[in-house]
Design a protein around this nucleic acid. Sequence first.
DNA 1: AATCAAAGTTAAGCATACCTAAATTAATAT
DNA 2: ATATTAATTTAGGTATGCTTAACTTTGATT
Lengths: 220, 220
Amino acid sequence: MTSVSKENYLKLIYAHKQRSNESVTTSILAQDLEVSNAATSEMAKKLYSSGLVTYRKYKGLELTQKGTKIALDVVRRHRLWELFLMKVLGLSWAEVHDEAERLEHISSEKLIDKIDEYLEYPILDPHGEPIPNKDGVMPEVPKSIKLSEGKIGTRYELTKVDDRGSDLVMYLNQVGMGLNKRIYIVEKYSFDNSVVIKFDGKELSLSEKVAQHLFIIKTN
Amino acid sequence: MTSVSKENYLKLIYAHKQRSNESVTTSILAQDLEVSNAATSEMAKKLYSSGLVTYRKYKGLELTQKGTKIALDVVRRHRLWELFLMKVLGLSWAEVHDEAERLEHISSEKLIDKIDEYLEYPILDPHGEPIPNKDGVMPEVPKSIKLSEGKIGTRYELTKVDDRGSDLVMYLNQVGMGLNKRIYIVEKYSFDNSVVIKFDGKELSLSEKVAQHLFIIKTN
DNA sequence: AATCAAAGTTAAGCATACCTAAATTAATAT
DNA sequence: ATATTAATTTAGGTATGCTTAACTTTGATT
Ligand SMILES: [Mn+2]
Ligand SMILES: [Mn+2]
Ligand SMILES: [Mn+2]
Ligand SMILES: [Mn+2]
């Protein structure tokens, strides 16, 4: 009924809606999935006739309840695997995503439940994203802000990295920055919107671009 | 270059050779994979032109060195996953095989290495089968015999279960029999070749069929 | 050696998920 | 309103891995 491809589509439609709160176009899907527009247009029809999305030609796609349920389940499997691989097997932050991208499609419910149990029903994945529970309910998590929106002279904790296109994660690994690190905003320069932070005793300057992809919450 | 299907074919060709030491026919593959003869005949051609098997029409298939390398790698991934899932996540003996059958195709080398490391470079999977190392070398393990060939009044240890068609494993779970259990052969009846064994203080009668699918090694 | 059944292969076709190129619709600018 | 451009869909085609039905080869029986 579903398939690897369909699950990836559903997950992406879900993710897009989370970010923009708008229905997603076939072109956006094509870009994200690195396939042709023709491919996504066709898939739109198939998802529609399976009752997983609403879709009208030239308008976008939106998940139905049925589609949302599957998307959330894929998200759950993805995030549990990411956390598991990192915590238990010591894969790096940068590696877990690609691995999870495949594992999410072939894990039995039983296996996922065991992983969930092993990790003691975690709420956040290693990228700081919430993990839906078995019933597709997202846990409440403190709202994070972009580092670029943080205040000078304030302490924060890094809770999330938007790492689509994973150079960023590799860079962060390199400089020793990572999830749950405590940081202090030393300075913000308005001429290029760069941000200087302090963590682990070191100072580090981050470009606007980077600062917009790191998410933080205030800490004591 | 390879694919899930191809990897499954190669693994099966390898397994067949291990058992019978003969080249495998397309019909046998068809039976084992539950696909048509036509499908395996076609795949034989494809594997041949990829240089993974030798194949002459109406004769069987045999792995080339290149094919053997891949087969062993799939076997390695399969067995490491089985052991990992059982030891770490507590999946049952009966469950790990099906899960591993899918995981074996989508795990990066890095991930498999991490699992290997985590398990401290194990030599046997939970079915008592040897795990090839990274270079495709099978470890030396004591040769087991079928329970049906065991001697009355002798102590053995269950080291392996041939569980293609997994009713057997479920049955064993039910009666409390499992890998590494010590058993004692109480009686063998020639009228139906059934075997009566004793383990954990209990006596249990096993049919010829079952006794031919359990493998044991002599123990003190 | 001729016959016949079983084993194995080929032929034709289907589903999935892609592709490129052509056609259509929508949005924007004049 | 019309024309131009950009976004999107459709048409026609490919690769993979299957299917059933028809055909061929093998090898066992007489
Ligand atoms: Mn991820
Ligand atoms: Mn995926
Ligand atoms: Mn197995
Ligand atoms: Mn498999």
